[in-house]
Amino acid sequence: MSARPVKHSLTLRGHRTSVSLEEPFWHAFREIARERGMPLNELAAEIDAARAAGDAPDSGLASAIRVHVLDHYRAAARRGTPET
């Protein structure tokens, strides 16, 4: 997997946007969406809404996705749940 960011397009609330993430983050982000049974765009919109309403509304969507992925796997580690 590449450590260089890879740009993908997402649709958030009817608007297209591009997000650059490293391939391991894209993989983990897709896996989380699959685990939750939701489309990737829906998860991205949820993360974006939380970002905008949270402590760092000026941070970018890519950063918010990375933090979400990290939080997801940290919570799984605390529960002792094996994650993919």
Rank of each mutant, 00 (worst) to 15 (best):
M1Y: 10
S2T: 08
A3R: 11
R4V: 08
P5M: 04
V6Y: 06
K7R: 14
K7E: 07
K7S: 10
H8I: 01
H8A: 03
H8L: 05
S9Q: 11
S9C: 10
L10T: 02
L10G: 01
T11L: 02
R13A: 13
G14D: 07
H15D: 09
R16W: 12
R16T: 11
V19P: 00
V19C: 00
L21R: 00
E22T: 00
E23M: 09
F25W: 02
W26H: 01
W26D: 00
R30M: 07
E31D: 13
E31Y: 11
A33V: 03
R34M: 14
R34L: 12
E35C: 13
G37K: 09
M38S: 07
P39M: 09
E46N: 10
E46S: 14
A49D: 13
A49M: 13
A50Q: 15
R51T: 03
A52N: 15
A52W: 13
A53Y: 14
G54D: 12
D55V: 14
A56E: 15
A56G: 15
D58Y: 14
G60K: 06
L61F: 06
S63T: 09
S63G: 15
A64P: 02
R66H: 07
L70G: 08
A75C: 10
A75W: 04
A76Y: 01
A77L: 09
A77C: 07
R78G: 05
R79Y: 05
G80Q: 04
P82G: 02
P82K: 04
T84G: 07
T84D: 09
